[in-house]
């Protein structure tokens, strides 16, 4: 039903404003699916996820500016670069865990922003870098907003399916074993280090894809988009939506992107609403809004269908 809604959304003719917001929500959701696997399945939280989105975006912008490599060819480069960086940042997690690792991710994010801000012409410094438009593919013109929407939706569906496959695979079960009891998992022969680095790289790959899509949608990127504050927002979205269920990241992205728009909240009111929402989720819905909705559905479902 949700997939049908995503595909039919432009046909509702809600206007370009909502279509534009839907695109940015989709891009955010793609990044969140990576964080969802890392946090929801492996139990490793990060408050620096926007940094990997930034690495994907900057990789695309730099290869476009220096070598003239366009969107389609830059996709694997952005994904690989973000995945590699995420793997490297994940290395300390082999020695430290919990809140200590969360602080490391936060520091990495802040450090990346400083590097990008002071990177001279290579990173465009604080002003950032410009990116061209997406090249036509099979005659499809991606300057049209609707076509960008369908591109983002397609990638989002691929990420959703990939996440579903990971959750329901032996790999997903291994990650959950690590999440529930790391020492026990090690005792039964699971290579903890390998799997942890692996999940960071998977998470980074999702972020890299989101990064290149964001760069080519905004067509101008700057360090401020990838600092600690946007990272905290991603962490907030995943906690609100729920990280363990398949639609959790999407719901989290929709809540944070559309709630202020629909309720006409200014940024200060929005933050207050998020804070209250987060408290409610932590106290009443530990699995996030998606888990709460699933619970309500199960309670309301007629007994005969149970």
């Amino acid at each position: 039903m949700i997939l049908a809604f995503l595909i039919a959304f432009p046909l509702l003719n809600l206007g370009y404003r909502f279509l534009s917001l839907a695109i940015t929500t989709g891009v955010t959701a793609i990044a969140l699916y990576g964080l969802g696997i890392q946090f929801g399945q492996a139990g490793i939280m990060s408050v620096g996820h926007a940094a990997f989105v930034g690495i994907g975006a900057y990789t695309a912008a730099i290869v476009a500016g220096m070598f003239g490599i366009g969107f389609w060819l830059a996709i694997p480069l952005s994904i690989v670069m973000s995945a590699l960086c995420a793997g490297m940042v994940g290395l300390p997690s082999l020695r430290v865990g919990g809140q200590h690792y969360i602080i490391i991710t936060f520091c990495f994010c802040a450090l990346l922003q400083i590097i990008l801000t002071n990177g001279g012409t290579f990173t465009g410094a604080a002003t950032g870098l410009d990116v061209g438009s997406i090249d036509h593919l099979f005659g499809i013109n991606f300057d049209q907003l609707r076509n960008i929407y369908y591109l983002v939706t397609l990638v989002l569906i691929i990420c959703l399916v990939t996440t579903y496959l990971i959750i329901n695979s032996p790999y997903g079960r291994t990650l959950r074993a690590i999440r529930e009891n790391e020492m026990l998992a090690r005792a039964i022969g699971i290579n903890i280090g390998l799997h942890k680095i692996g999940v960071f790289m998977v998470s980074g790959a999702f972020a890299g894809m989101a990064g290149i899509l964001q760069a080519y949608y905004l067509r101008h990127i700057s360090p401020i988009l990838y600092g600690p504050f946007p990272s905290l927002y991603l962490a907030l979205m995943i906690m609100l939506g729920g990280s363990r269920l398949i639609y959790g990241p999407l719901i989290g992205a929709v809540i944070v992107s559309f709630l202020p728009e629909i309720m006409r909240l200014d940024p200060i009111d929005s933050r207050i609403a998020y804070g209250i929402g987060l408290l409610i989720v932590v106290l009443l819905l530990p699995g996030g809004v998606s888990a709460g909705l699933l619970d309500i559905y199960r309670r309301l479902r007629p007994r005969s269908l149970k």
Partner: peptide
Amino acid sequence: RTDVNVTIAAARE
């Protein structure tokens, strides 16, 4: 709202 995504959406609208 001092947000680039909202800026883009507003410009599109």
